[in-house]
Design a binder for these strands. Structure first.
Lengths: 105, 105
DNA sequence: TGAAAATATGTCAAATCCGACATATACTAC
DNA sequence: GTAGTATATGTCGGATTTGACATATTTTCA
């Protein structure tokens, strides 16, 4: 695990203060977190590509700027459900979703 | 139209995917439902392949038989989050997930 | 057939997640 | 610098989702 990724995880509120702690996570726990990171990255990329601010996207999908920020930060309070719904609302296809999910962060 | 009625129609033999227009679903609504159906199918297939009963799976992933049944029925009360977590708990890889998502129902 | 196992359905309190708001911090361009 | 814009963070009431339970229905098999 790269220092970058660890920093990102920590920033997102996950308890990752050391590699040992991270290794203490079960495989499905880390897979779940990795999945969320992949989706949040995809969301941010798509938003930027469309030239939208977080506020503009929030209005577009009936959410709020703060929640968009949390989505993009893969915050622990954000579900995969919301990430997927948001991506779909931005016009992502199933294949795009699948690709985001399959692609390692 | 409620998700419940939609489900009943599907059970009654309607080809939901081709009836989207008639049902007045937005593209992201139908994509979301299709996604859930794909994941629930994948979950059921994986469980059967492992020779597990719903009760056994429930114990394995700390849930309940009734919730497993609802997952496999793509019930409106079940989130994509739970479906993904369950698949990961059964040992699905990200690529398997991606494939399930990309594959049309 | 009929009992037993598996699955489906309905309900609900508790846990989790959401949008909204306030506020802080970061980034531009002057 | 600093004014303006964008993004991040903390909190909270209300909405949604969850596991659990009761019960109904379906499937399996002798």
């Amino acid at each position: 695990m790269t220092p970058d990724k660890r920093k990102k995880l920590k920033k997102a509120g996950w308890k990752v203060s050391s590699a040992d702690e991270f290794l203490g996570l079960s495989p499905e726990e880390s897979a779940y977190i990795a999945l969320k990171l992949a989706l949040s990255e995809s969301l941010k990329n798509k938003r930027i590509k469309k030239g939208l601010s977080q506020i503009a996207l929030a209005e577009l999908i009936a959410s709020s700027q703060s929640r968009i920020a949390k989505m993009e930060a893969a915050d622990a309070s954000v579900s995969i459900d919301l990430l997927v719904k948001s991506l779909l609302a931005m016009g992502a296809s199933r294949k795009e979703l699948a690709n985001a999910i399959a692609t390692p962060g």
